[in-house]
Design a protein around this nucleic acid. Structure first.
Lengths: 187, 187
DNA sequence: TGTACCATGTAAAAAGTTACATGATTGA
DNA sequence: TCAATCATGTAACTTTTTACATGGTACA
């Protein structure tokens, strides 16, 4: 049981999913490919943490809908209070900062514009998700309970938006510095 | 040549370092252990991207001070304009959000307090680094040129502070929600 | 006395990515 | 027609982590 395994279990505690759905859902928090997910699910099934039912589909491949077992829920509850590992980040763009001074002005600007675009796109997606979640919330009547499965989605979405905002602001701040001629020895 | 190799090269373009120093310097942007750094340096030395001089030390182990070669600088300049890979993050705490509703109120609060503490500590460190960098800057007379090696450090530090600020605000926001009795079915 | 820092390296294991494999549908 | 989405799996490879190895100094 590694961290990713617990992550999948956490998603299954919210609702039953296929491996494919889990792969899509876990992306914002933990990047993993299907080739990593499927073997983990098989392994957790063998150890009784999850179970599945095969569902035949018309005009689509069959799927396995996984759900968490009692044993799986216990495992999750044991993992939750553990001290969380420090976040790991690997960001190629940030490595480039160390040798930015070797690049010409046009390249530097393009690098930041590309990153700006990336986070602007993500911001749009997040805002749409938030609107959707808030819509569903109004429909249900309840104002969002801390002890409900959707609370996690909500705080994660808030954080994703705050993060994208920060990244966008940072890019614009640097872009501003590049233009405002703090250094004009460009190209 | 993988991304980490270019990162080490980028640091060496700023100033000559030992493997140990590179390992410490690269942490904020790309977590890597010494066991990964040393073999890469040896490999880059064999392919002529870096070179080193052995320096004997009194009362400390000998060290190898690496510096970038012309070939290494060319390689860096070829890498810089490439489209940067999307940042990768893996954050155990965020995975826990999906099953927060399975935890009792005290555990939930402790989880966020631990994270708050982590980023508060980092914030202190970053602020100290910024003060140091601004002090050195005043000493040199120049206001910080975009085309100088310290510009990278500066924008990275600004970003690190913005990021820590965001993490702290998020934790406090969630902690506020937990207290203000949006849900009081605790413990 | 135990931990942390400096300093380098190798070996083994775990985690993650890319590629191979299959196959139908839908939209650009 | 090409790419994307749904859907599952394995094999090969790369990257990263953990553990093994050594050894002195300095600070609680």
């Amino acid at each position: 049981m590694n961290t990713l395994s617990y992550g999948l279990l956490a998603l299954l505690a919210q609702e039953s999913c296929t491996g494919y759905e889990l792969m899509l859902k876990i992306q914002p928090v933990w990047q993993a490919k299907h080739s990593q997910i499927y073997p983990i699910l098989a392994k957790m099934e063998r150890s009784g943490l999850v179970q599945f039912v095969s569902v035949a589909q018309k005009e689509k491949p069959d799927k396995k809908v996984y759900s968490i077992t009692e044993k799986g829920t216990s495992a999750l509850q044991a993992w939750l209070p553990d001290l969380s590992a420090e976040p790991v980040k690997r960001d190629e763009m940030l490595l480039k900062m160390y040798c930015l001074w070797l690049a010409d002005a046009a390249t530097t600007e393009r690098l930041f514009r590309e990153r700006l675009k990336l986070y602007a796109k993500r911001m749009e997606k997040f805002r749409a998700s938030l609107a959707e979640l808030e819509g569903a919330e109004q429909g249900s009547g309840k104002p969002l309970g801390v002890r409900t499965p959707s609370f996690g989605k909500y705080v994660l979405l808030k954080r994703a938006i705050d993060h994208a905002r920060m990244e966008i602001d940072w890019c614009e701040w640097v872009l501003g510095m590049l233009k405002s001629g703090i250094d004009s020895s460009g190209a």
